[in-house]
Design a protein around this nucleic acid. Structure first.
Length: 721
DNA sequence: AGCACGCCGACT
DNA sequence: GTCGGCGTGCTC
């Protein structure tokens, strides 16, 4: 009996593959095998097949080749390999991230029926058999005259899927394979393009081979319409399109818009909020080419798409494209790599592009497509003003002029939003007598006062306790909350505007599934006219009647150690501002600041992100900061900071002789977190090559001799410093 | 990462 | 006398 020898990548943090024996032809490259590994059984992906036995005596046989995963195509394997090499991660872990969970389990996947359509063999015979009183069953039987998806069946009744199974067993219903779609999609009526949009669409449609485009335009400038037109063009050529979006809660809105435009297309959405089975089915639909549009969050970048013709990355600057746990990849950067590898156009959209993308556009590697401000539907740009807070006494943290504008807006019948990026009642509780403040025992952070349930909470480690009745140090009973959080602002506004009670929206009161949607519905209905919220409200949600936005604590990002903080603040403020005045009325945005003279605000008030980005880029060049240099960050945490620092110093030593500059290890900016003391080692080089080599070298070193009592992370191209 | 084996404290 | 603490070692 001839055997194959398989090189298999497993989801273990080891930087190598493992060899197995298998019956000849049992599994090919890119397919899934189930293998014994130590005392456990794991799922792995075959990377190579050889007929000659490897030089290893303890070789084991595979346990099974379930054949439930269509072989990952060479381009996806190449993408995963690039990701593993670039981010110094084991290939098996990258592959695991690329597969839906059901295809990572060491057991065969058996839920594939859902990509099929269901149809009655003889609907009239079925109806004749059913009781006249079984209304829902009859409705389903009637529906099944034409092929239906599992989802459509489920919508008929809670038990409908069970009836379907029974009828299928009785041969009354059969599964039919969906047609693989090709050709021009049917399209719902689409709005007229303006000149800039038309030029952008033409440019993308004309692209042959790799081409990267930066679609630069603010909220309301019509970026989505450009996406839809270029997507339609690719579908018309029989191709598939991958659309990446930053976050799950943005997917339904965009998805609805896509479905509306392409009513006959199977549009598949892929994100981590999906149930395992559903995600696996959607993924398989995309892999088989049944779904031509894939809309997903960062994990969707790995989806095998046989006829891929275009990749769109919406809000390309958004931090959520960066995976922060496990393999720390940037889905945006991988998307560009994939487009280049497959010789496709990639369209990066943003009102506030990342400086990385800006640099590429400036230097001509990406082509910039400008959409002028608010060109669509008569929308007008909001007026942005700065309110200096140095001299004026604030009322509960709010400038009197801001209160006055709020009053006027509400009196006019408009909606207003007060934006404060800090939840809780106040960020710290302090003693007036002795200077005690509510610090967290396990973190270098303050416990935040939550009045709703009368607790002090650490927002970093989750520690919480009751509010002390007196100062733990001096016994003073006069403890004062310092500073504002969403709850305090809510209270303040509630007492000032009793006729229009404020609604607070932050993570504290939207934990339950669906509660955010319920609250947003109240806002849309006009039931709520005064809103208080955190950055949760900055993204995606459009409130037609929102006329005024007040931003309370913008300054926090202004003097950060992180050189990207200003860029993020600009993006966030512009995004919040974009919420105001969408339906023809100009919105007002008021930003409270203690530093009105800061050059940052000059750029913001001018609404000129391009000028700001040019300045930022010039500064990065001057100071040799990314993207004008390449960075690698090694983060370490141990029970004692000395251990973390010593560990990093040893790593630094291990880099001598390499073409990188390794800095002195330093304590992290919040050095104590959840009882661990954290430090970081920065490694830089003018280009990526040496940095990637250094990362690989350290990863190999650490895998061979893992340190004791130290947790570590290798972060190539770190986004938070 | 799991999941073993492996030697030292409080319990049926 | 055992149950179990997590230290360290290996996985084709």
């Amino acid at each position: 009996m001839p055997s194959d020898y398989l090189s298999v990548a497993l989801d273990v943090p080891l930087p190598r593959c493992f060899d197995y024996r298998a019956p000849a032809g049992a599994a090919g490259v890119g397919e899934r095998v189930i293998v014994p590994f130590g005392r456990q059984t794991l799922s792995g992906v075959v990377l190579a097949v050889s007929e000659t036995a490897p030089d290893f005596t303890g070789l084991k046989d595979i346990a099974a080749a379930p054949g439930d995963l269509p072989a990952l195509p060479a381009d996806v394997l190449a993408l995963c390999r690039f990701c593993a090499d670039f981010y110094a991660a084991p290939l098996g872990m990258v592959l695991a991230a690329a597969l839906p969970a059901a295809l990572r389990q060491p057991k065969p996947w058996s839920g594939d029926g859902a990509t099929l359509l269901w149809q009655a063999t003889d609907a009239d015979a079925l109806l004749a058999r059913l009781s006249p009183r079984a209304r829902k069953q009859r409705q389903l039987a009637d529906l099944l005259r034409t092929p239906q998806t599992r989802e459509a069946v489920r919508e008929v009744a809670g038990d409908a899927l069970r009836w379907l199974a029974d009828w299928q067993a009785a041969g009354e219903v059969i599964a039919v394979a969906p047609e693989r779609r090709t050709g021009v999609p049917r399209q719902a009526a689409s709005p007229q393009l303006n000149a800039a949009q038309a030029a952008a669409v033409d440019a993308v449609n004309a692209a042959e081979g790799f081409a990267a485009f930066l679609l630069y335009g603010v909220t309301g400038s019509g970026k989505t319409e450009v996406y839809l037109r270029t997507i339609a063009e690719r579908l018309g050529r029989g191709e598939q399109v991958l659309v990446l979006v930053p976050e799950i809660n943005l997917t339904p809105q965009l998805e609805a818009r896509f479905r509306q435009r392409f009513p006959d297309e199977a549009i598949v959405s892929l994100h981590s909020g999906l149930a395992d089975g559903e995600r696996t089915r959607s993924w398989l639909q995309a892999v088989r080419g049944e779904a031509r549009i894939v809309l997903g969050t960062r994990l969707a970048v790995f989806t095998p798409l046989p006829a891929l013709g275009l990749i769109v990355v919406d809000e390309e600057h958004d931090g959520s494209y960066r995976q922060q746990e496990g393999v720390r990849y940037s889905a945006r950067d991988l998307a560009v790599w994939r487009a280049h590898d497959r010789k496709l156009p990639v369209l990066l959209g943003s009102a506030t592009p990342s400086i990385e993308t800006w640099k590429n556009a400036t230097e001509g590697r990406y082509r910039r497509l400008n959409l002028p401000l608010r060109a669509v539907g008569g929308a007008v740009a909001p007026t942005i003003e700065v309110l200096p807070t140095g001299r004026t006494a604030l009322q509960d943290g709010i400038h009197p002029l801001a209160l006055e504008r709020l009053r006027a807006t509400l009196a006019r019948g408009g909606q207003a939003l007060v934006f404060i990026n800090r939840r809780g009642y106040s960020p710290v509780l302090a003693c007036n007598e002795c200077g005690w403040v509510s610090g967290c025992k396990r973190c270098d952070a303050r416990l935040v006062l939550h009045l709703g349930d009368r607790r002090l909470r650490c927002h970093h480690c989750g520690f919480e306790c009751a509010i002390p009745a007196e100062c733990p140090d001096c016994g003073n009973i006069d403890l004062k909350p310092l500073g504002q959080g969403t709850q305090r602002v809510e209270d303040a506004l509630a007492s000032r505007f009793p006729d229009t009670p404020p609604l607070r929206i932050d993570r504290d009161n939207t934990r339950r599934k669906g509660s955010l949607e319920a609250m947003l519905a109240q806002v849309h209905d006009g039931e709520v006219r005064l809103l208080v919220g955190t950055q949760m409200l900055a993204k995606g949600h459009d409130f037609a009647n929102l006329q005024l936005v007040v931003v309370l604590n913008a300054d926090a990002g202004l003097f950060s150690v992180d050189f990207r903080a200003e860029e993020r603040l600009f993006a966030q403020l512009l995004q919040v501002a974009g919420r105001a005045g969408r339906a023809g009325q100009p919105g007002q945005v008021l930003i409270q600041t203690r530093y009105p003279e800061h050059p940052f605000y000059a750029a913001l008030l001018a609404g000129d992100y391009a000028a700001f980005a040019d300045e930022q880029l010039a500064a990065r060049r001057e100071l040799l900061l990314p993207p004008c240099a390449s960075w690698l960050m090694i983060r370490a945490e141990a029970k004692r900071i000395e251990t973390s620092l010593a560990f990093l110093s040893a790593l630094r030593g291990a880099l001598s002789g390499m073409a990188v500059q390794a800095m002195t290890p330093i304590a992290a900016s919040m050095s104590r977190k959840a009882g661990w003391e954290r430090a970081q080692l920065l490694v830089t080089a003018p280009t990526r090559g040496p940095v990637v080599a250094a990362a690989a070298h350290l990863a190999t070193l650490l895998a061979a001799r893992p340190p004791k009592g130290v947790r570590w992370v290798i972060d190539v191209d770190p986004q938070d410093v």
